[in-house]
Design a protein around this nucleic acid. Structure first.
Length: 240
DNA sequence: GCGACAG
DNA sequence: ATCTTGTCGC
């Protein structure tokens, strides 16, 4: 794969874990590099927001990734890139990133300019070991990242109010020997529609992660970044 | 041991 | 994620 440009920790791709224990060890080591002390891009910033997503064909051992860059203010698509590769890891809850990251990095690397914010399909801090795919992608690239997931995974929440923009805390109730921890937010992006689940990845705080998600979901439940990347990676898979 | 769980 | 028909609604 092409490891120039965007990837600040390409060495991580050469030590790919062989099994579940190895993958957990990678997460436990890289977690220390996550930055939670930066606010991240301001709402309304000038630049590009990039959505990333993947589609699989396990039969043929193919994963297709897409990265779509939108103008952060107008949400117009300004660039897009795809990549395909073998499926590098089985699906194991908590280890999703190892299925997606190599091919997503390839797609990101093919963009004409460096993203100002990356929106991932899944979780960041909201993860059993606080290192979901958005965190992982952030640490490997150094870019500000957030996670927007469609289902609550293992977490609990009370339904947010019915109006667009309403939020409620997302809780991890399975903290070993401790109190529940707030790991993200349920965010109602459209009135009368199921919420999405937002968590921080790298170099963005939760308030801004939610603000960006809401702004990106002006018309539909899911952010335009996610919709565009999902559509493109499906097409890329169909063309393999 | 069983269940369940981002995508 | 993916497998899959019709159906209700704007």
């Amino acid at each position: 794969m092409d490891t120039s440009g965007i990837i600040s920790r390409a060495d991580e791709l050469r030590h790919w874990p062989a099994d579940e224990a190895g993958a957990r060890a990678v997460q436990d080591r890289l977690r220390a590099h996550v930055r939670l002390d930066e606010a991240g891009p301001e709402p309304g910033f000038e630049g590009t927001v990039v959505g990333v997503d993947v589609a699989y064909d396990d039969e043929r051992d193919v994963v297709a990734a897409a990265a779509v860059a939108l103008d952060a203010r107008t949400l117009a698509v300004v660039d897009e890139a795809t990549a395909v590769g073998p499926v590098p890891f089985p699906y194991i809850p908590g280890l999703l990133a190892f299925r997606e990251i190599p091919t997503v990095l390839d797609a990101l690397d093919r963009l004409a300019r460096i993203p100002d914010l990356v929106v991932c399909d899944g979780y960041g801090l909201a993860h059993p070991r606080r290192f979901g795919l958005a965190s992982h992608l952030g640490v490997l690239t150094g870019l500000p990242t957030i996670g927007v997931a469609k289902t609550p995974f293992t977490f609990s929440y009370q339904a947010p109010g019915p109006e667009r923009g309403a939020t409620s805390p997302l809780w991890d109730d399975q903290v070993a020997g401790g109190e529940p921890e707030e790991v993200g937010r349920a965010l109602r992006t459209q009135r009368g529609v199921k919420p999405v689940f937002v968590s921080v990845g790298h170099r963005v705080d939760l308030d801004r992660a939610c603000a960006h998600t809401l702004q990106l979901a002006a018309r539909y439940r899911l952010p335009e970044t996610t919709r565009a990347a999902d559509s493109l990676c499906r097409k890329a898979l169909a063309n393999v």
